[in-house]
Design a protein around this nucleic acid. Structure first.
Lengths: 234, 234
DNA sequence: ACACAAACGAGAGCACTGCTCTTGCAATGC
DNA sequence: GCATTGCAAGAGCAGTGCTCTCGTTTGTGT
């Protein structure tokens, strides 16, 4: 399969597929998903628009590929912050990961809109995007698990009507942690992305000015919600 | 009809404008903003597509009108819950307003996507939408102010690098409340809408099953963040 | 009462989109 | 060598937002 005559075609195909994705990503980053036109990327690639359909059966499939890439790129940023902060106090790691996610979102607003904004077409989140999408959440959970191992986790309480749900959540995503933290993790995950989304989408215009300090402070509150001692707390 | 010479045209114009908005809103609710086509609404209204431009100078202007309406509709839902819960404990009112917002979002997912999802076109949030957009936030703040008047507000602390910002925020949106609660209010506002957005946009699929109980519990945590005693807390 | 101006509706048309189908060419497999 | 397959290009369809023009209707100032 390496130097077989069959491989030449395959390699060319991979290269062209990558070139299409790259150009599409460039346009996405500049103008947003709504303005992404198959014909335009075909034009700048010097190929007929119909040729693109050999590589992506439809525009939505191209978008799905970009979605997966965006999830992965964001997940990598979060995991990088996780690694870079290894050994630090859980509270510090928490804000490090959160700020990495925020930094990525501010640097790639259109990609962020693609994955956490409104589902663009008839909205479809194919199952293939799930693993890439969960990386951010797992990075956050890693911090919590870290704190739990160190005995520094303040396990929250959970109402009776959520106990079963918490147990299921814990079994699915948070193995090795007390079930009671699972709902808090999920809630904080959604709240963090909501907070970042508001900033990226301009909802904070004329409302929040000191964005950095505001984010740091708010993220500290989120840490407390999952049972962590926030960074810099006495 | 000839009673008011000047009013005949104006009234017809208002009626047609309303009919266009109504039909557009219907299509928006069914298919989403991306699929909203000017020509299609013109067709079902029995008029030429070019005639629509006498009433809305562009598709984006129609969308802007729908955005304002959606903000108002959501704001009304929140304010209705506020009124209906008058006299109840602040914690109860808090979850009442939050659940009203969530209920509206789940009932009008496309409208919700329009106002809190990714900015669709080249994204424009004209200043005219601001008052409508702030109604939800003010409904939440009203609950906090209510608690403060009753002396039941647990004023949070604010780090030194946010004190000036908190004072500015308080002067702008939260008059009569201690400045320290302002950042918490803004943060919780963003977090609440983020939480709802995750549910509406399907991010909770296969993750949260008991949505009602989960939301109730999470919203209780948000209440605590702004200094309220959550509903049903001892 | 009449003329003038403004508002209006309809149609044609432009540039653009996603997507399909057919045709011709080149590389691959027997 | 020959048949099969993968690929690229072009034409074409249906649809979009938007503009322009051309009559017609409606309201108003004199």
């Amino acid at each position: 399969m390496t130097s077989t005559p069959h491989g030449a075609r395959a390699r060319a195909r991979n290269e062209i597929t990558a070139a299409i994705k790259e150009e599409a990503r460039r346009r996405l980053a500049e103008q947003g998903a709504a303005e992404l036109s198959l014909r335009a990327v075909a034009r700048t690639l010097g190929m007929a628009s119909s040729a693109i359909y050999r590589y992506f059966p439809s525009r939505d499939d191209l978008l799905t590929a970009l979605i997966t890439d965006a999830y992965d790129s964001l997940g990598e940023a979060a995991e990088a912050a996780l690694k870079a902060s290894a050994g630090a106090a859980p509270g510090e790691r928490w804000t490090a990961v959160c700020e990495a996610v925020r930094g990525w979102a501010l640097a790639h607003p259109h990609e962020y809109a693609l994955i956490y904004g409104s589902p663009v077409p008839g909205y479809a989140a194919p199952a293939t995007t799930v693993p890439a999408a969960s990386r951010v959440g797992f990075a956050l959970i890693d911090v919590v698990r870290d704190a739990h191992r160190a005995g520094e986790l303040n396990v929250p309480s959970v109402p009776a009507d959520l106990e079963a749900e918490a147990a299921r959540m814990a079994a699915d995503f948070v193995p090795g942690l007390p079930p009671a933290v699972a709902p808090a993790c999920v809630a904080v995950w959604a709240q963090l992305l909501g907070l970042i989304g508001f900033e990226v989408f301009g909802q904070f215009t004329r409302i929040v000015e000191e964005r950095d300090a505001f984010f740091r402070h708010t993220v500290g509150g989120l840490a407390r919600t999952v049972g962590l001692r926030p960074a810099g707390a006495s």
